[in-house]
Amino acid sequence: MKQNPHFQDADAFYEQLLDAHAGLSREEAELFNARLILLLANQVGEARVLKECIDAARQLPPTTA
């Protein structure tokens, strides 16, 4: 699993992600996120790497809003 930044343009991706959520209800945004996660997971493909990503994400501290 890659843990160092690997984005070609992280700022552009973040902007695209924000734009994709514009005008969505919370439920629609959650469904969009689920679809996006599945599409990205399909790009990764390897079960071991996906498990490592899940484990790493669970270890990150929660954000406060």
Rank of each mutant, 00 (worst) to 15 (best):
E52M: 08
H6M: 11
A34E: 09
H21T: 05
G45V: 02
G45Q: 03
L17A: 14
M1C: 11
E15M: 12
Q16E: 08
M1D: 13
L17T: 04
T63S: 10
L38R: 13
Q59H: 10
E28W: 05
T63F: 07
K2N: 14
D9Q: 06
L60I: 09
S25D: 03
A65L: 14
F32T: 00
L18K: 13
Q59T: 04
N4A: 12
P61C: 01
A57R: 05
E52C: 04
N42M: 13
Q59P: 00
L18D: 05
N42D: 12
H21E: 07
Q59G: 04
I54N: 06
D55F: 14
Q8M: 10
L50G: 00
P5F: 05
F32S: 00
F7L: 03
G23E: 00
Q43R: 07
E30H: 06
A41E: 06
L18N: 11
H6G: 02
P61M: 01
Q3C: 12
A41T: 09
L31M: 10
H21W: 07
L40T: 02
N4D: 15
E52A: 11
L18W: 04
D11N: 15
H6K: 06
D11V: 12
L40I: 03
R58Y: 15
P5S: 09
H6R: 05
L40R: 05
A29F: 01
A10G: 07
A22P: 00
T64Q: 13
A20T: 01
R48S: 13
M1Q: 14
G23R: 06
A47Q: 15
N42E: 11
N4L: 09
C53Y: 04
Q16K: 13
